[in-house]
Design a protein around this nucleic acid. Structure first.
Lengths: 226, 226, 226, 226
DNA sequence: TATGAATGAGCTTTCATTCAT
DNA sequence: TATGAATGAAAGCTCATTCAT
């Protein structure tokens, strides 16, 4: 038989895996805690403990709490915009349908996942981390706005939407999403009934209303003209 | 003997005035710093220094940093809702005009003042202060939502707006305001051009769009049908 | 009628009286609090409040908390030893009777009054106030020991007591008294049943026992010889 | 490769030893300082410094100054009563001898060691720590009284001592010990000649006197009947 | 004389960070 | 690589003391 050292024993393998997984586990733990409690109120011991390592080990991977924070944000920002842009480009159907589809997809992939916590984090702690805020602005906000702009432009170009001042129109789409994420992570976490709000219903109504304002002839998709 | 001066000497007056002014000065300083730096990163010495007193003096008026924070929140949300409700009740004109008027007034009295920082603060620090979050929910959020609901109901009752699911419609109005406040105090504070966004223009477009979705026959206030 | 300014109005009189009484009231309050809580844990505000004056006023009469403490001790030490020495000198009756009488008188005038708190105070805080401890030693301890020595010597001289090493015999009398005062003010204040101990009974037994050891022929007062 | 040394290197050993020794060193230092200066006047930095560690380290082992105090008390009263009870039970000889033996042993093991400072501490600070005072009452005072009661009862049972009201008789034995500890740690610390008092001689006389009061026929051990 | 607002040194406690093992 | 004991700067808060009125 091949001597044990040749291929990693299960234990070793596990170890190796763990070792490589360490930073990821730490980032995971840190994300949760930063979102839950904010930057200042999160203790590095807690992060380490939740990741199942010692405090010292954390500092082996991240030179400081601030760098840990930055890494958390960087890690979780991950530009999926290319992929999404492709989806938008290849979408077949009306732009109203596209917009609704985007809201739906956003809610499933971001809004209702832990990823939304990042946004809460960024908005809450922006002033402490100008550098990373700028980074966020470039990597997330701008591409996101670009994507929205593309969608709206598609509507205008195809004669579905009225003419729009794009620089401001994008916020029609953006504001409801940001609001929802924040609401969920702040008030929603403390005042349970503050989230009597059903996200899907909320999104549907926001989309309806936006579209009613946007489409050229309001053959309002959900509520036909009276 | 020299008769006591009929009115208090300037010095006395000054002292008295200062004494009465102290809590206000401290709250002002605290508001600024909390908004600038968040709860944890604000040092009580700093607050005291900015108010022109010593650390000890601060604790003469507020028993703890946390109570100071609560006082700041309480102070800055003082029931202006009664006054506003009256304005709404006595408003003469179309409900569309009323809504626009409300946005304008909100921006002037809250949105663009330091008071908007409170909202940012509350949303960012909600988890540290469940108690005060609840308080905020009761004293600010709920009355605010009530007011919006009244406005929308007025529109519906007068046949100006279509039928609405009120529980969700209020967010059509609320979300854009909250978004603006947050944007201004987080991204806006770091990435100056993130606020290339002109608030007045932003508000106008949001109002336009909402109304276009709300009014029965879209004699769209700003963009007449082509 | 005589104009009010001619003789002090009742109010004025009261004021005057109060004014003169101030230091006394402060010392009274301070004694109570120092005994209750110790030197460090006693706040000067509390002393002032209990005396019904402002903190500033306290410092008008006593330049510091330490001086207040010293004044409290000095005030309450008051040599009543001259008077007692006279009582001892003129006592008619057996020395056993004298000793019992002294215990009784001590308990009534010192042991069970607030004055006993001073002893507790002195013993507890001695190390903080070497100066006043020395003073206490000279003004209280030594005269007290002297008095006891006189009593015992009287017994020896009259052939009632056996020969004694006076330097140590005095502690036979002293220790039970000190013990009782301390017990009452420390354990007794916290563990109520620690004072199931009835002082009069305790004293009686201690006196009995001491005397049984002292008198030449032990016609033991309470338990006749077998 | 160089084989790992068979026994831990001296350095390692030292570290390990230190780690385990820390709490003990801190308790030792705390005991000394609390006894010297009282609870309030003792600074945690001082305790840490005397133990040769930093302030932070102290809080690694004791969550607060108060808990440190409690630990000091607990540590120093450790149930030596069981052992003593055994000594009493198995003692061979007269009860008078037993009592003298107990005094001697007490002085050597407690009275003249730092442990006696704990008593001083407890009596002085009792009011600050009702909880620990109760603890002390249960764990030290009560067992101590029990032991004394056993001794006296032994005397009575064997016909050596006269009939006694045990609830009060125990204080005949207890009071002289407590007095001595207090004296030593308060007056004795300030007024050196206040301790001209030789403890052994003091104890001997107290024991003599007590026994003379207790034994049925006063074949007084030190002073034969005249 | 009396006040009480103001002070600031000094305390306990926390926690990110280091480093010997 | 991983540990966790140790650190010490910095924070919140207290309270004896001062002083303008």
């Amino acid at each position: 038989m091949i001597p044990p050292s040749a291929h990693p024993s299960p234990t070793t393998a596990k170890r190796e895996r763990r070792k490589e997984a360490r930073p990821g586990e730490l980032l995971e733990a840190a994300l949760e805690l930063f979102v839950e409690k904010g930057f200042a109120a999160t203790r590095v011991d807690e992060v380490a403990a939740r990741a199942g390592v010692s405090k010292g080990t954390l500092f082996l991977y991240f030179p400081s709490k601030e760098e840990l924070f930055k890494a958390v944000v960087r890690e979780n920002i991950a530009g999926r915009f290319a992929e999404w842009a492709l989806e938008v480009d290849t979408f077949e159907g009306s732009t109203s349908e596209l917009l609704r589809y985007c809201y739906k997809v956003w809610w499933e992939r971001i809004g209702r996942t832990k990823a939304s916590g990042i946004t809460k984090l960024m908005l809450s702690e922006a002033h402490h981390f100008p550098e990373i805020t700028q980074f966020y602005q470039h990597e997330v906000i701008r591409p996101g706005q670009m994507l929205i702009r593309c969608i709206l432009q598609r509507g205008v170009d195809r004669g579905e939407f009225r003419a729009l001042d794009m620089d401001y129109a994008i916020y029609l789409v953006l504001a409801p999403m940001l609001f929802l994420m924040l609401w969920k992570h702040s008030m929603g976490a403390c005042v349970p009934d503050a989230l009597g709000l059903e996200p899907e219903k909320y999104i549907a109504m926001q989309a309806d209303n936006i579209l009613q304002g946007l489409v050229v002839r309001p053959p309002s998709p959900s509520s036909p003209p009276g």
